[in-house]
Design a protein around this nucleic acid. Structure first.
Lengths: 198, 198
DNA sequence: ATACGATACGGAACACTGTTCCGCTTTACA
DNA sequence: TGTAAAGCGGAACAGTGTTCCGTATCGTAT
C-alpha cells in the first residue's frame, strides 16, 4: 500500500480543512437523523441537517449506502472484534455464539431499517450488504466452527446462511411491536443445536 | 350483506363492458410483468403492457398493493384452503404443518420480491400485509394447535410470529442463488419441535 | 500580503418513482 | 338516437436518488 497515494472512498482524509469538517458534520447529522427517521431518511434531509448542499453530500459519499457504511463501520468492527473475548469468556463455544448473535441483533434492531437496507436487492445497497458480510462472516464462521468442533451443533450450516437468516428475521422489528425477532432467532439456534444424546 | 349495493374494491364487477375488460387486461398484464420484472415493477410498465392509461389503472386498483393482492388473491386462498386436506392426509399434524409451510414458501419464492413487499413497513403495502395475515394466520394457527395438541411441538409460538418469520426468511431468495431460505426454515421447525423425551 | 490554481461547495436540473386530476370519449339505457 | 353517467388517457404533481457546473473557498508559491 502506498500511503502517499490519494485514497478513494468516504474515509479519505482531505487536504482541505472545510472538506474534512463537512465530512464529519455529515456523519454526525446522519447519525442523528438515522435515529429519528431511520436509515431510509432522504439524502436532502441529512444534507439540510448538516447545513450542506447536495453536491457536498455526494462528493463525500458517492452513494447513500456509502454514508450508511461510514456511519456504522465502527460499530460493525466492534461487533466483529468482540468474537475472541466471547470465545474465551463463554462457558462453551455455543454460548459464545449466542452472545455474539445477541450483539449483532442488538445492533440491527437499534438502527431503524438497517436490516431491511442490508438486503442485497435494495436499490444501491449492495455495498452495504457486502461490507457487513466481508466483516462479519469470518468471525461468525470461527464461532460456528468452534461450536461444531465441540460437538454442540450439527454441522453443515455456513456462516453466510446463518447471518443472512438472522438479518432477514430482524427486518421490520420496528414498525411492528408484536413481532419479536429474537424469539425466532432463538428457535433457529435451538434447531441448530445437536441433540444431547448422539 | 346487500348484494345490490355497489361493491368497492378491485374485484367489483363493473356494469360497463370496457371497464370489466380493462380490469382483466390489467390483471393479465400485471401477472406477466411480475414474472419478468418482479412485484416491484413500475405502474407505468404494467399500464403500458395492458395498453391503458394511468388513470384507468388507478380507477381499478386504488394502489399498487391492491393490484398485487388481486393478482395473487386466488393463490393465497388456495394455500389457505389446502389446510384441511393436509391435516387429514398427513401422518401427523406436524407433517401437515411442514407440508403447508412448503406450499407457502413455494408461493413466496416464486413471485420475485413478494416476500419483501409483504413487509408492513414498505410504502403502501400495509394492505397486502394485512390480507396475507388475515387469510393465512387462522389456518396456520389451526395447524400449530393440532401439532401442539399432539405434543409434537413446544407451545408458545403463535402463528403470526411463525408466518412473519417465514416471510422474512424468504426475502431475497431471488437475487442471491447461494441463499437457501428453505434450509433455515427447516432449522426453525426443528427448533420448534419438542424433544422426543419429555 | 497577495495572487493564483486546485479543490470543494451549492443547488438547479435530471430521471425515475407512485399518485391525483380533469377534459374528453364511450357506453348503456330510455 | 339522444343523453347522462361511467370510464378513459395522460399531463401534472410530489417525492425519491443522483449528476452537473458555475461560483466560492482554501492552501500555497511568490
Amino acid at each position: 500500500m502506498n500511503e502517499s497515494s490519494p485514497r478513494q472512498g468516504s474515509s479519505a482524509a482531505s487536504k482541505r480543512k472545510d472538506a474534512r469538517r463537512n465530512q464529519q458534520t455529515l456523519l454526525d447529522a446522519a447519525a442523528a437523523v438515522f435515529v429519528t427517521s431511520g436509515v431510509d431518511a432522504p439524502v436532502r434531509e441529512i444534507a439540510a441537517k448538516a447545513g450542506v448542499g447536495l453536491g457536498t453530500f455526494y462528493r463525500h459519499f458517492p452513494t447513500r449506502a456509502d454514508l450508511v457504511i461510514a456511519v456504522y463501520r465502527h460499530q460493525v468492527d466492534t461487533c466483529a472484534e468482540a468474537c475472541p473475548a466471547l470465545l474465551t469468556a463463554g462457558p462453551t463455544p455455543f454460548a459464545a455464539l449466542e452472545r455474539w448473535i445477541d450483539l449483532f441483533v442488538d445492533f440491527l434492531v437499534t438502527k431503524h431499517g438497517l436490516a431491511a437496507a442490508m438486503q442485497a436487492d435494495s436499490t444501491g445497497f449492495e455495498a452495504l450488504h457486502a461490507y457487513f458480510l466481508d466483516r462479519l462472516v469470518p468471525v461468525c464462521t470461527q464461532l460456528l466452527d468452534a461450536a461444531a468442533a465441540a460437538g454442540e451443533i450439527r454441522p453443515g450450516l455456513d456462516a453466510y446462511h446463518l447471518m443472512r437468516g438472522i438479518g432477514n428475521l430482524c427486518i421490520g422489528t420496528d414498525s411492528d411491536p408484536r413481532y419479536d425477532a429474537r424469539r425466532l432467532i432463538a428457535l433457529l439456534l435451538t434447531g441448530l443445536r445437536r441433540p444431547h444424546r448422539t
